[in-house]
């Protein structure tokens, strides 16, 4: 009997604690992101929640238990699809795991805002829906930004080396491609290695490359972790070689501020989440959403590293946001 008392008490408590306040809000947003065991998605969640608060939008952010929990993520979305939300913000673990769960959402004609990882358009079409908009970072553009910065730093025709992630990784390939396109015909890419996103492997590879090419002027690494490894190798060699990374993690920002790493290209999961909420607000106002919205990538060098660190996980300065413009 005591157990029933406890349950009843618990029910009462839960009812008072968690009942969603449904007043004074323009729209109610349901968001589902990948595993919160990864800081990237924690930052994204923070962006969603803070933007929702600023915009007066109600939000329920749910996440998969971990990065392997493809069905759990679908289950949670299914539960939320039954509730009366005005907009669904989804960052799927795989290109297809949320497709079935989104069918009832599409049937209710609620906008689906796809952020960060894409939903396979073919499978969505087969299931009878299309996402309202996609908001994410363009890896090619981010790589190109790094390439343009390298052009400013080293004399024309200098030798540079590239450090890629795991062989065949789509993200790594796109970043390298962007960098190559930006420096084509202006710099001499002497070598490209794969260091599996690993700091130690990048350090070893960079040491070897420096020995083989004593006149090397710069390195581009496809993520910050590897860039920090490369930077360590450059420091040990005592040479003045520029190192540019990509991601904008805290360690890299600190290193840039301290004058070690030359520069990094920062991506902002915080902004991706926040822009998702803006898209939902636009949809609630009945505005037409653009099919594809690029999230900002910003170059961080010694000039703005301190500001970026201070504002982390938000960008250090203003950034282009087409959705914000549309809301005005």
């Amino acid at each position: 009997m005591r157990m029933f008392n406890c349950l009843a008490l618990g029910a009462g408590l839960l009812a008072t604690t968690f009942a969603v306040p449904a007043h004074a809000e323009d729209a109610k947003v349901a968001a589902i992101v990948k595993g919160l065991d990864n800081p990237f998605f924690q930052t994204m969640q923070k962006g969603i929640e803070e933007q929702a608060k600023a915009d007066g939008v109600g939000v329920n952010v749910q996440a998969a238990a971990n990065m392997g929990d493809a069905t759990g993520q679908a289950d949670k979305l299914t539960a939320m699809a039954l509730q009366d939300y005005d907009c669904y913000l989804v960052n799927p673990i795989s290109v297809s795991n949320l497709v079935q769960a989104l069918v009832p959402v599409a049937q209710k004609k609620k906008p689906i805002v796809n952020i960060d990882s894409t939903i396979d358009a073919e499978q969505a079409k087969a299931a009878g829906f299309a996402v309202s908009t996609y908001i994410g970072t363009d890896n090619v553009a981010a790589g190109a930004l790094a390439g343009e910065e390298m052009l400013k730093l080293v004399p024309k025709g200098s030798k540079v080396a590239l450090v890629a992630g795991i062989v065949g990784d789509v993200g790594s390939n796109a970043r390298i491609k962007g960098f190559k396109q930006a420096v084509e015909g202006k710099l001499d890419v002497v070598v490209m290695v794969s260091a599996d996103w690993d700091r130690e492997k990048a350090l070893t590879a960079a040491t070897d490359i420096l020995a083989a090419h004593p006149d090397l002027a710069g390195f581009f690494a496809a993520n910050d972790i590897m860039a920090l490894g490369v930077e360590r190798a450059v420091q040990t060699s005592g040479k003045d070689v520029k190192v540019i990374g990509l991601d904008g993690i805290v360690d890299a920002l600190k290193s840039v501020a301290a004058g070690e790493l030359t520069a990094t290209v920062a991506q902002y999961p915080y902004v991706v989440g926040a822009m998702g909420v803006e898209a939902c607000k636009l949809a609630a106002k009945g505005k037409e959403l653009p099919a594809n919205v690029p999230a900002p990538v910003l170059l961080i060098n010694k000039d703005n590293a301190e500001a970026s660190l201070k504002n982390f996980p938000r960008p250090g300065g203003d950034y282009p946001d087409p959705l914000r413009e549309m809301l005005k």
Binding site: A65, N66, M67, G68, D69, A70, T71, G72, A74, S94, V95, S96, N97, V99, Q100, Q123
Partner: peptide, 17 residues
């Protein structure tokens, strides 16, 4: 049932299962 539900076969273990 899993492949049917998520539409793809993924080499990732769902430890919560």
């Amino acid at each position: 049932l899993l492949v049917a539900r998520i539409g793809s076969a993924e080499p990732q273990i769902n430890t919560s299962l």
